[in-house]
Computed example of a mutant assay.
Amino acid sequence: MPIDPIRPTDAEAISLAKSLITTASFGALGVLHPETQTPLVTRIAVGTDLTGTPLTLISDLSAHTKALRNTPVCGLLLGEPGPKGDPLTHPRLSIQATASFLSRDDPDFPKTRAVYLKSHPKSKLYIDFADFHFVKLTITSAALNGGFGKAYTLTAQDLA
Protein backbone atom coordinates (compact mmCIF):
# COMPACT_ATOMS: atom_id res chain seq x y z
CA MET A 1 0.00 0.00 0.00
CA PRO A 2 1.56 3.33 -1.07
CA ILE A 3 2.35 5.92 1.56
CA ASP A 4 0.53 9.23 1.17
CA PRO A 5 3.21 11.86 0.43
CA ILE A 6 0.99 14.68 1.73
CA ARG A 7 1.75 15.51 5.35
CA PRO A 8 -0.88 16.79 7.78
CA THR A 9 -1.01 20.58 7.59
CA ASP A 10 0.58 22.14 10.66
CA ALA A 11 1.48 25.61 11.93
CA GLU A 12 4.96 25.44 10.37
CA ALA A 13 3.54 24.68 6.91
CA ILE A 14 0.98 27.47 7.22
CA SER A 15 3.67 29.92 8.33
CA LEU A 16 5.94 28.98 5.41
CA ALA A 17 3.07 29.32 2.92
CA LYS A 18 2.09 32.75 4.27
CA SER A 19 5.72 33.82 4.14
CA LEU A 20 5.96 32.80 0.48
CA ILE A 21 2.88 34.93 -0.24
CA THR A 22 3.97 38.03 1.67
CA THR A 23 7.56 38.03 0.39
CA ALA A 24 6.83 37.30 -3.28
CA SER A 25 7.58 40.01 -5.79
CA PHE A 26 6.94 37.86 -8.84
CA GLY A 27 5.13 34.67 -9.67
CA ALA A 28 3.95 32.50 -12.52
CA LEU A 29 0.26 32.97 -13.35
CA GLY A 30 -1.61 30.17 -15.08
CA VAL A 31 -4.84 30.96 -16.92
CA LEU A 32 -6.98 29.51 -19.69
CA HIS A 33 -6.46 31.19 -23.05
CA PRO A 34 -9.79 32.90 -23.87
CA GLU A 35 -9.97 31.62 -27.45
CA THR A 36 -8.41 28.16 -27.27
CA GLN A 37 -9.08 27.30 -23.61
CA THR A 38 -5.54 25.91 -23.46
CA PRO A 39 -3.19 26.69 -20.57
CA LEU A 40 -1.29 29.96 -20.71
CA VAL A 41 1.41 30.75 -18.15
CA THR A 42 3.06 34.12 -17.72
CA ARG A 43 5.35 35.80 -15.20
CA ILE A 44 3.69 38.62 -13.27
CA ALA A 45 4.56 41.06 -10.52
CA VAL A 46 2.83 40.04 -7.27
CA GLY A 47 1.99 41.93 -4.11
CA THR A 48 -0.64 41.67 -1.42
CA ASP A 49 -3.50 43.88 -0.35
CA LEU A 50 -4.06 44.97 3.24
CA THR A 51 -5.59 41.60 4.13
CA GLY A 52 -2.68 39.59 2.69
CA THR A 53 -4.59 38.53 -0.42
CA PRO A 54 -2.26 38.18 -3.41
CA LEU A 55 -2.77 40.73 -6.15
CA THR A 56 -1.20 41.93 -9.34
CA LEU A 57 -1.29 44.99 -11.56
CA ILE A 58 -1.91 44.06 -15.19
CA SER A 59 -2.61 45.79 -18.49
CA ASP A 60 -5.54 45.30 -20.83
CA LEU A 61 -2.91 44.65 -23.52
CA SER A 62 -1.88 41.38 -21.82
CA ALA A 63 -3.28 38.05 -22.93
CA HIS A 64 -3.68 37.00 -19.30
CA THR A 65 -5.95 40.00 -18.62
CA LYS A 66 -8.33 38.89 -21.34
CA ALA A 67 -8.10 35.32 -20.03
CA LEU A 68 -8.97 36.34 -16.45
CA ARG A 69 -11.93 38.42 -17.63
CA ASN A 70 -13.18 35.40 -19.57
CA THR A 71 -12.43 32.72 -16.95
CA PRO A 72 -11.48 34.05 -13.51
CA VAL A 73 -10.15 30.78 -12.10
CA CYS A 74 -6.38 30.68 -12.20
CA GLY A 75 -3.22 29.30 -10.66
CA LEU A 76 -0.32 31.20 -9.13
CA LEU A 77 3.10 29.68 -8.41
CA LEU A 78 5.25 31.49 -5.84
CA GLY A 79 8.73 30.74 -4.56
CA GLU A 80 12.11 31.37 -6.08
CA PRO A 81 14.93 28.86 -6.14
CA GLY A 82 17.99 29.87 -4.17
CA PRO A 83 21.35 30.60 -5.72
CA LYS A 84 22.72 27.15 -4.91
CA GLY A 85 21.53 23.60 -5.02
CA ASP A 86 18.72 21.84 -6.80
CA PRO A 87 15.89 24.32 -7.56
CA LEU A 88 13.34 21.60 -6.78
CA THR A 89 14.44 21.46 -3.14
CA HIS A 90 13.45 25.09 -2.47
CA PRO A 91 9.99 25.89 -1.05
CA ARG A 92 7.21 26.81 -3.45
CA LEU A 93 3.49 27.36 -3.21
CA SER A 94 1.00 26.52 -5.94
CA ILE A 95 -2.17 28.54 -5.36
CA GLN A 96 -5.57 27.94 -6.88
CA ALA A 97 -7.48 31.22 -6.96
CA THR A 98 -10.34 33.25 -8.36
CA ALA A 99 -9.47 36.60 -9.90
CA SER A 100 -11.49 39.75 -9.36
CA PHE A 101 -10.73 43.14 -10.85
CA LEU A 102 -10.59 46.10 -8.46
CA SER A 103 -12.39 49.13 -9.84
CA ARG A 104 -10.72 52.52 -9.49
CA ASP A 105 -14.00 53.62 -7.84
CA ASP A 106 -13.66 50.96 -5.12
CA PRO A 107 -13.07 52.48 -1.66
CA ASP A 108 -10.09 50.10 -1.23
CA PHE A 109 -8.37 51.32 -4.39
CA PRO A 110 -6.30 54.17 -2.84
CA LYS A 111 -5.02 51.95 -0.02
CA THR A 112 -4.28 49.10 -2.42
CA ARG A 113 -2.41 51.48 -4.70
CA ALA A 114 -0.31 52.83 -1.80
CA VAL A 115 0.56 49.36 -0.49
CA TYR A 116 1.46 48.12 -3.97
CA LEU A 117 3.70 51.10 -4.65
CA LYS A 118 5.67 50.37 -1.45
CA SER A 119 6.56 46.89 -2.70
CA HIS A 120 6.80 47.80 -6.41
CA PRO A 121 8.02 51.43 -6.56
CA LYS A 122 8.92 51.25 -10.26
CA SER A 123 5.23 50.65 -11.06
CA LYS A 124 4.74 54.37 -10.38
CA LEU A 125 5.62 54.84 -14.06
CA TYR A 126 2.41 53.11 -15.23
CA ILE A 127 0.15 52.42 -12.23
CA ASP A 128 -2.21 55.26 -13.17
CA PHE A 129 -2.51 54.38 -16.87
CA ALA A 130 -6.15 53.71 -17.76
CA ASP A 131 -5.39 50.25 -19.15
CA PHE A 132 -3.81 48.98 -15.90
CA HIS A 133 -5.93 47.23 -13.27
CA PHE A 134 -5.42 45.62 -9.91
CA VAL A 135 -6.54 42.02 -9.81
CA LYS A 136 -7.08 40.30 -6.47
CA LEU A 137 -6.35 36.57 -6.49
CA THR A 138 -8.64 35.14 -3.83
CA ILE A 139 -7.18 31.83 -2.70
CA THR A 140 -9.45 28.79 -2.89
CA SER A 141 -6.77 26.20 -2.04
CA ALA A 142 -3.03 25.67 -2.27
CA ALA A 143 -0.34 23.03 -2.43
CA LEU A 144 2.89 23.69 -0.55
CA ASN A 145 6.11 21.95 -1.39
CA GLY A 146 8.32 22.93 1.53
CA GLY A 147 11.32 21.04 0.19
CA PHE A 148 12.11 17.37 -0.31
CA GLY A 149 9.46 15.21 1.38
CA LYS A 150 7.51 18.19 2.73
CA ALA A 151 4.23 18.36 0.79
CA TYR A 152 1.05 19.88 2.21
CA THR A 153 -2.45 20.70 1.06
CA LEU A 154 -3.74 24.00 2.41
CA THR A 155 -7.21 25.49 2.46
CA ALA A 156 -8.28 29.08 1.98
CA GLN A 157 -8.91 29.19 5.74
CA ASP A 158 -5.34 28.05 6.45
CA LEU A 159 -4.04 31.05 4.49
CA ALA A 160 -6.57 33.66 5.68
Rank of each mutant, 00 (worst) to 15 (best):
Met1Tyr: 11
Met1Thr: 13
Asp4Ala: 02
Asp4Arg: 08
Ala11Thr: 09
Ser15Asp: 13
Ser15Tyr: 07
Ser15Met: 06
Ser15Gly: 07
Leu16His: 02
Ser19Pro: 01
Thr22Ala: 09
Ala24Glu: 07
Gly27His: 00
Gly27Ser: 09
Glu35Ala: 13
Thr36Ala: 13
Thr42Phe: 04
Ile44Tyr: 12
Val46Glu: 02
Thr48Ala: 14
Asp49Cys: 14
Thr51Glu: 15
Thr51Phe: 14
Gly52Asn: 08
Thr53Glu: 13
Thr53Trp: 02
Pro54Lys: 04
Asp60Tyr: 00
Leu61Pro: 00
Leu61Ala: 10
Thr65Gln: 04
Thr65Met: 12
Lys66Thr: 04
Leu68Ile: 05
Pro83Cys: 01
Gly85Glu: 03
His90Leu: 02
His90Trp: 15
Ile95Met: 07
Ala97Pro: 06
Ala99Leu: 11
Pro107Ala: 13
Pro107Cys: 05
Asp108Lys: 11
Pro110Asp: 10
Lys111Pro: 01
His120Lys: 08
Pro121Val: 02
Pro121Arg: 00
Phe129Lys: 15
Ala130Glu: 13
Phe132Met: 03
Val135Ala: 13
Val135Tyr: 01
Val135Trp: 00
Ile139His: 00
Thr140Leu: 06
Ser141Ile: 03
Ala142Arg: 04
Asn145Pro: 00
Asn145Leu: 04
Gly146Pro: 07
Tyr152Cys: 11
Tyr152Pro: 05
Thr153Cys: 07
Leu154Asn: 11
Thr155Ser: 15
Gln157Asn: 12
Leu159Ile: 05
